[in-house]
Computed example of a mutant assay.
Amino acid sequence: MTRVLHILDHSLPAHSGYTFRTRAILKAQQARGWDVAGVTGVRHPLPGPPYERIDGIDFYRTPAIPKLPSPIREWREIGALAARIDELCAIERPDILHAHSPVLDALAAARVAKKRGLPLVYEIRAFWEDAAVGNGTGREGSIKYRLIRGLERRAVDTADAVVVICNGLRDDLIARGVAADKITVSPNGVDLALFGAPPQPDATLRSALGLDDAEVIGFIGSFYDYEGIDDLIAAMPALVAARPKAKLLLVGGGPCEAALRAQAASPVRDHIVFAGRVPHDDVERYYALIDVLAYPRKKMRLTELVTPLKPLEAMAQRRIVAASDIGGHRELIKDGVTGTLFKPSNPADIAATLADLLARRGDWEAMRAAGRAFVERERDWSANVLRYEPVYQKLIDGR
């Protein structure tokens, strides 16, 4: 039986795209008969005991450390996580250490892998320096940006194998000089066991949100600047002029929420609904109210290189998907087949594309079926998990 210790930034019970991908990987590996556990670093956001069993998965926590200025804090984080990994190696006796981004996790795991002679897999979900730019906490080309980029390369060189979530990240690493045969793509996917038949729309919830008899455009996710929600709001006057029943439903929250609410106080404010954050278990009820899921991400390194999870979940729910024409979306959406693409940061084109899509309801069933079929064929975690098997086996045999 293959025993794998996953090194993570955070995990369940926190809810994020990161934790849902982690859950999917670990549950799918358990289904293969592998013995898996996870350990989170000091950035795990929720208080709790040093060990938790959640959804049948063992998670260990790293004790908190004092607040210190950067970069001393990051160095201490690496040390604290490395010490915890080392402790757990005596308990879990893993065959493989599998570190997931950010790079701090890989650097901590590398210390233990060297000490104990264990193979190390480093899985990159996004480059940390680009994620900081996308979240507004970093600037491309700055000293900090270049330093983190150098650490990423060091972690990649130290790891025995590298996994990335999309071709954009793979191509970028190859352009940096990383050998192509060291990299495996394990794309974002969906646990289809969690996505059965979409629920029927909740008439009471629809009325409470003021969406009766509306054509509903929806966004469900975190309100970060790079998501481009401001462009979607800016498109609403033209969309309402073309489709008077159109309404925009925004579900979620985040750093840009106050600015977005202020922007929405416009002549079409009655056509824009903020639902706020909702419990994860209730999200399907909101999906069921939406005609078209819109993902207007802006064009930047992060969005060009990284594929998001939400469009796949929408396709699994048999929802219509419209998204900006950027690299991360083009890996998921075939324009006119599994969804529709519009120009990024272009409210006029967003409005025109959505109006045209709302006018072509006769095409929707074929698009829904094509999207669901794509997820079933290429992005179901029960199949995706097989991509790890030859990587692990090669490293274990080599050891």
Rank of each mutant, 00 (worst) to 15 (best):
P119T: 04
L120I: 02
H100C: 05
D105N: 15
L104N: 12
A126E: 15
P119I: 04
P119L: 08
A113Q: 04
K114V: 14
H98T: 10
V103S: 08
L97N: 05
L120Y: 03
V103P: 07
A109W: 07
V121H: 05
K114M: 09
P119M: 06
I124A: 01
K114G: 06
L107G: 08
R125N: 14
P102F: 06
R125V: 12
D95A: 15
R125C: 11
V103F: 10
L104V: 13
P119E: 05
Y122L: 04
D95C: 14
V103T: 14
A109Y: 09
A106L: 05
L107H: 02
P102C: 05
K114H: 12
A113W: 05
H98P: 02
V103N: 11
L107R: 01
R116T: 06
A106N: 13
L120C: 08
A99L: 01
K114Y: 02
Y122K: 00
S101D: 10
K114W: 08
A110S: 15
A108H: 09
A108N: 07
A113G: 04
A108F: 07
R116N: 09
K115W: 02
S101K: 00
R125S: 11
L107C: 05
R111W: 00
P102N: 06
D95G: 15
H100L: 10
D95Q: 14
A113F: 05
K115C: 04
L104S: 14
